[in-house]
């Protein structure tokens, strides 16, 4: 189990050179093959085959209940934290490694592929402790390193200027938008390769939403981003690649401009024109 953890992380550390060399040019950094997911006895996802391109923003759209969050969570093995949810067949390849292989450490996967949840969930501790929550698990930190690291990732999440005077106060004092950026800083501090975002703006006001969207635009220079959204306008603004899901299946998968201009299915047209919510 530990052995694989090295493989995964060293592959990640040496990335992108190896991966791009080894894979066909069309292959993405993250790929699913015939992925099927059940909640208890009920099947939620059917034969998902998608490929996520590196350093791009991929948007997953679809009406509520279509399985987009389920798909997203299956990409970094956080799905199995939900009782009853299970990947019943298929694989998810990160580079050349199937992350559902029995000897892969789910914790290592979650570190390299971070996730931001729908509702910001700051932990009941100080702002600095929140940012360093994952880091302090993955490596020993000297006291002097702490503030430095906190500053680096809070800056990346665009929050530093707002909180630099109250790093040691409770994170619950922050506004919703600030909390979501704190969660982003917390995920960034884990030094991931890929960031999954599960409707990160759905509980935020328009101004905070705009801040997050700006951050996504900046971050895609260094990270691969997969964002689940209910909001068609948002995916128009952000996405390079777009997927459309319906009832547990991917029905459209194309570069964003193409998908928005010419949806190939009737359901896709209906969704994009707002006839299906």
């Amino acid at each position: 189990m530990l052995q694989t953890a090295i493989n995964l992380n060293s592959a990640a550390a040496l990335h992108p050179a190896i991966l791009t060399a080894a894979s066909a040019p069309s292959a993405g950094i993250l790929q699913t093959q015939q992925l099927n997911i059940h909640y208890g006895l009920e099947q939620r996802l059917f034969d998902i085959n998608i490929s996520i391109a590196e350093r791009q923003v991929t948007a997953i759209m679809g009406p509520s209940g279509c399985g987009k969050s389920t798909l997203l969570k299956s990409l970094n093995r956080t799905l199995e934290l939900t009782p009853g949810a299970e990947v019943t067949s298929g694989s998810v390849y990160f580079g050349e490694l199937d992350i559902y292989q029995s000897d892969v450490d789910a914790r290592a996967v979650r570190k390299v592929i971070g996730i931001i949840h729908q509702r910001p969930q700051p932990f009941p501790m100080s702002i600095e402790e929140n940012v360093l929550f994952g880091v302090r698990f993955h490596q020993r930190l000297k006291r002097s390193q702490r503030q430095l690291l906190a500053e680096r990732y809070l800056t990346m999440a665009g929050l530093w200027d707002e909180v630099k005077d109250r790093l040691h106060q409770s994170a619950h004092q922050l506004s919703g938008g600030q909390q979501q950026r704190l969660c982003l800083a917390r995920t960034l501090a884990n030094q991931p390769q890929i960031i999954l975002m599960d409707e990160p703006c759905s509980s935020l006001d328009p101004a905070s939403t705009e801040r997050i969207e700006q951050l996504v635009q900046q971050l895609k220079n260094d990270y691969t981003i997969v964002i689940v959204t209910h909001n068609i306008a948002q995916s128009r603004r952000l996405a390079d690649q777009a997927l459309l899901m319906m009832e547990g299946r991917v029905i459209e998968n194309a570069p964003a401009a193409q998908l928005f201009a010419n949806p190939t299915t009737v359901a896709g047209q209906d969704f994009l024109q707002g006839r299906i919510g």
Partner: peptide, 16 residues
């Protein structure tokens, strides 16, 4: 490579 080893070492303690 160096980084990966460091991570493994600390992970092992936490995993134990």
């Amino acid at each position: 490579m160096h980084k990966a080893e460091q991570l493994l070492l600390n992970n092992r303690r936490a995993v134990v």
